[in-house]
Amino acid sequence: MSRPHPQSSRKSSAPWDRLRPVKQDPLESVGFVSKGDNMLLDIKTQESYYHKITARYMQFCTQYSKNLNEAFASLSVDGSTSASADPTRNPPVRPVQTQSLRPTTPAYSARQTSATRTSTQNMAGPNPADGLSIILTALRKLREGLLATSHTVASPVFSQRVHVFNIRLAILALHPPSYHPSLRYLLTVLHTKEHPLPASELREMMVYHILDTALREGDMNKAHALRVRAKASYGIVDRNLDTILKAVVWDDWPLFWQIRSKVDGYIRAIMHWHLDVIRKSTLKAIGRAYMKCDVLWIVQGATGGEMSWEELVEKEDVGWSRDGDTVHIRKPKAKT
C-alpha cells in the first residue's frame, strides 16, 4: 500500500501575486523618434510631455534651491557623455563616473573647483546630475518629435517655446551639445517673418549665440560678424555684450571680472568657457611684470575672487612661493 505524499508546509501562491506594477519615470517612458518610437509624433502628446518636463524642472529647482548653482554644475563633477564624437547629434546619457560630459578642446576644457565639487557631493538626497540628465534627454526627445512633425504644423510657436526653454536650461547646465544646435535651429529656421520671436527673446538668443561663438568656440571674427549682422538686421545693441567682447579682445581681466559680477546667470554660465583662458593669461602677465605681489591681488586678478590661493595653485600648478600675504614670483638677479 503506497503512502500518501507529505504535503508541503509552504503555501502555494498564484504567480500573478508576485508581479508588481513597474514604476517608470514618465519622462523616460517615451523613446526617441529616431529610434522608432512614435509617441511624440502626436501634437497633443508633445504638449503634455512638455508640461511634464517643465514641472520636473521646477521640482529640480525647488529641491536644490539652497545649492542651485552647484546642482547645475553637477554634470561636470560626475561626468556624462554623448553617444558619438558629434556632440550636436546626441543627447546626454546617464552620468558615468569614468566619463566626462564636457567637450575636451584644449583651450576650453571645463573644470570644477574643489569647493564646488565638495559642495555637490555633500548635497542631501539624489544626485542632481541624474535629474539634469533626465530633463535634458527628455528635451532632446521632444525636439526630435517637433522636427519630425514640423511640416504638418501650421505655426512654429510651440516649437519656439520648447527651444527657448531648452537653450536656457542647457546653458545653465554648461552642456553645449544640448543648447548649441538648438540655438542655431531657433535663429535660422524657427524665427521667420511670418512667426518672429518676441523682440526680447530674439535679442537674448542672439546675445547667447554671439557670446558662445566668441568664448566657447574661440572664433572672435565670426562673433563680430554675427554682432554686426544682429545690429544691421534687427537693431540689436547690448552694452554687456560689447563690454565682454572688449575685455576678451584686449585681455582686460579687471574688466572681465567686473562685468561677470554684473550679468545674469545665463551670461555668467557662457562666460565660464573663457575662465581657463583669462586665468592663464593673467598669471602669465603677472609673472612677467612683477617680482612679488599681494596674494589677494593675484587671486582677485586671476579668478575674480572665485577661487582661493590653494585652489589656484592646484589648478594651474603655480610654482611661486608664498610668505604670509606676499607671493614671491621671481628672485632679483645678483649684481655682478
Rank of each mutant, 00 (worst) to 15 (best):
residue 2 S to V: 13
residue 8 S to I: 15
residue 9 S to L: 13
residue 13 S to W: 10
residue 14 A to H: 15
residue 18 R to W: 15
residue 23 K to Q: 15
residue 25 D to G: 03
residue 30 V to E: 03
residue 34 S to K: 10
residue 35 K to G: 00
residue 36 G to F: 11
residue 36 G to Q: 07
residue 42 D to R: 05
residue 42 D to I: 08
residue 42 D to M: 05
residue 45 T to M: 09
residue 45 T to Q: 12
residue 56 R to E: 13
residue 59 Q to A: 06
residue 61 C to R: 14
residue 66 K to W: 01
residue 75 L to R: 00
residue 76 S to V: 01
residue 78 D to H: 13
residue 83 A to W: 13
residue 86 D to M: 07
residue 88 T to E: 05
residue 95 P to N: 08
residue 98 T to H: 07
residue 99 Q to N: 08
residue 101 L to S: 04
residue 102 R to T: 13
residue 103 P to M: 11
residue 112 Q to Y: 08
residue 114 S to F: 11
residue 125 G to A: 08
residue 126 P to Q: 10
residue 130 D to A: 05
residue 131 G to C: 03
residue 135 I to Y: 07
residue 139 L to V: 02
residue 146 L to M: 06
residue 152 T to L: 09
residue 153 V to H: 14
residue 155 S to F: 00
residue 160 Q to P: 04
residue 161 R to N: 09
residue 162 V to Q: 08
residue 163 H to A: 05
residue 166 N to G: 02
residue 171 I to F: 05
residue 173 A to K: 09
residue 173 A to I: 03
residue 174 L to Y: 14
residue 176 P to S: 04
residue 179 Y to F: 14
residue 190 L to I: 06
residue 192 T to V: 04
residue 192 T to F: 09
residue 196 P to Y: 04
residue 197 L to H: 11
residue 198 P to T: 04
residue 200 S to Y: 05
residue 201 E to I: 07
residue 209 H to L: 01
residue 211 L to Q: 02
residue 213 T to A: 05
residue 214 A to G: 08
residue 215 L to K: 05
residue 217 E to K: 13
residue 229 R to P: 00
residue 229 R to Q: 14
residue 231 K to P: 00
residue 244 I to V: 12
residue 244 I to E: 01
residue 246 K to V: 00
residue 248 V to A: 05
residue 250 W to C: 00
residue 252 D to W: 07
residue 252 D to H: 06
residue 253 W to P: 02
residue 254 P to S: 03
residue 256 F to I: 06
residue 258 Q to S: 10
residue 260 R to Y: 11
residue 263 V to M: 04
residue 263 V to L: 05
residue 266 Y to R: 01
residue 275 L to K: 13
residue 277 V to R: 14
residue 280 K to L: 14
residue 281 S to C: 03
residue 284 K to S: 14
residue 284 K to H: 15
residue 285 A to F: 13
residue 289 A to K: 15
residue 292 K to F: 14
residue 293 C to L: 15
residue 295 V to W: 03
residue 299 V to W: 13
residue 303 T to Q: 05
residue 315 K to D: 15
residue 321 S to F: 10
residue 321 S to D: 10
residue 324 G to A: 07
residue 326 T to R: 12
residue 329 I to R: 11
residue 331 K to H: 07
residue 333 K to A: 08
residue 335 K to P: 09
residue 336 T to Q: 04
